[in-house]
Design a protein around this nucleic acid. Structure first.
Length: 424
DNA sequence: TCTGGGGTCCTAGGACCC
DNA sequence: TCTGGGGTCCTAGGACCC
């Protein structure tokens, strides 16, 4: 049997690179991309990183100094990133037999058996060159017998430029060398909390974690960390998943551009979120039975009273009808609304999914779905996907003064005809 | 003035059943 | 005096990921 081989391909500074793709004039300039509502820094170009801009820092804290120093800033342009991402993934699908799209900027590739035919590092180099030539995005490639080691190899590919962006970690001697260099918190699956606890146990490097007794680790932590230990030792526990698992919950949540104090406006926002969630639910061809709505004030305003609450509403029958889900969410909101607060964020979560037509109502449940629901929702979705306009429920409000801030938004270069770049 | 959004998995503890 | 054990299901909370 072949030893498994995985590659992890990861786009460098992905959101910042996407923005720069269409702005070659920004070559060499620091770029940051902000989270929704222009809140935090979520991506940085190499230049921004070397200015010391930290991941996740609230933008207002660095804004003055950063902009004065010539830094460039963008609001998140998710339509653009998703489109560039799918182009990158298409190239990978062409080059590799089996791939798992792990996130918007990463994919695992199964290279088991390929090492008999090809030089693995050479294959990694080919991936890098093709994606750069065809899409214009730089990627790093890490290759190893387990996903966790492939992640680590990818980390090395980025951390040390002399690797040329490709690290083949199939050799145990190289594995050991790298593990000894890497701090334990860089290991996939080891976050801040676990790293702190491990440090207290005297485990500071990836190598020390790999050497730990996996049973002891399981007792102290969980099977998850135990698996990580095994994976670091080259024993593959995490398989490649080509097909994404069906979702178990769908969340639509947003902070508001301005604090909300009126029930009417909060209801509009919640209706809009419920309706977005319903749209995603229909995309997955699922029906849901639970709708949870939650609201909160800002946790960062110590002088204001904090309030946060959630309500769950169960539907009698699973539904994917925006009208029913908006109604349920509104009902939940009425239960938890309290006047006098400055609301900063709301969320709608859908759960308890049922695939189309499988739900068995019990003897005493009454079938009372809205007539023509599926056809109506189908028409709504097809209009909204056509790019010609958008129809929505009046409950979502027209002015929507709570909409998120996107001050520095770039054009949707690749997905909206009017935003196509012009060459003059 | 200004602090993201969307997910997953695991565990512990309580309710409940036989 | 003496008060089981095992299983399932559900939920809340905590941890992680990008």
């Amino acid at each position: 049997m072949n030893t498994p081989v995985f590659a992890l391909v990861d786009c460098n500074n992905f959101y910042a690179s996407c923005e720069r793709l269409f702005r070659p004039d920004l070559a060499g300039r620091p770029i940051v991309v902000l989270s929704n509502n222009d809140g935090c820094v979520v991506a940085r170009s190499a230049e921004a990183k070397s200015l010391g801009i930290k991941m996740g820092v609230p933008y207002f804290k660095i804004k003055a100094a950063y902009e004065q120093g010539g830094g460039i800033v963008f609001s998140s342009n998710y339509a653009l990133y998703a489109d560039i991402s799918s182009r990158v993934m298409q190239v990978l699908e062409m080059l590799a037999p089996r791939i798992e799209v792990y996130s918007i900027d990463e994919a695992f590739i199964d290279l088991t058996g390929v090492d008999k035919i090809l030089n693995l590092a050479g294959f990694g180099e080919e991936i890098r060159q093709k994606i750069f030539r065809w899409i214009g995005i730089n990627v790093g490639v890490g290759i190893a017998p387990t996903k966790t080691l492939a992640k680590l190899a990818n980390y090395a590919a980025k951390r040390w430029p002399t690797t040329g962006g490709v690290v083949d970690l199939t050799d145990p001697v190289r594995q050991r060398k790298l593990l000894q260099l890497v701090p334990v918190e860089e290991v996939w699956g080891i976050g801040r909390r676990l790293a702190k606890q491990l440090n207290q146990m005297g485990i500071h490097t990836a190598w020390q974690l790999a050497q730990a007794n996996s049973k002891v680790i399981r007792r102290q932590f969980s099977v998850v960390v135990e698996r990580t230990v095994c994976e670091l030792n080259g024993q593959s526990c995490l398989a490649l998943h080509e097909q994404p698992e069906p979702k178990k919950q769908i969340i639509s949540s947003r902070s508001f551009g301005k604090r909300i104090t009126e029930f009417q406006l909060l209801r509009e926002a919640v209706s809009k979120y419920a309706s977005r969630a319903a749209e995603k639910l229909r995309q997955q061809q699922q029906y849901c039975r639970l709708v949870q709505v939650s609201v909160r004030t800002s946790p960062f305003a110590p002088q204001e009273p904090y309030y946060s609450n959630a309500a769950v509403v169960a539907l009698t029958l699973p539904s994917a009808d925006s009208r029913e889900l908006v109604q349920a969410a509104t009902l939940g909101l009425e239960r938890i609304w309290k006047p006098g607060y400055h609301y900063q964020k709301a969320a709608v979560m859908l759960a308890d999914f049922w695939p189309t037509g499988t739900y068995q109502p019990s003897l005493f449940e009454v079938q009372e779905s809205k007539p023509n629901s599926e056809r109506l929702m189908g028409v709504m979705d097809s209009i909204n996907r056509s790019g010609k306009g958008r129809i929505f429920l009046a409950a979502e409000g027209i002015r929507q003064p709570w909409q998120m801030k996107r001050t520095f938004l770039s054009p949707a270069y690749t997905t909206r005809i009017s935003d196509l770049p012009r060459v003059t």
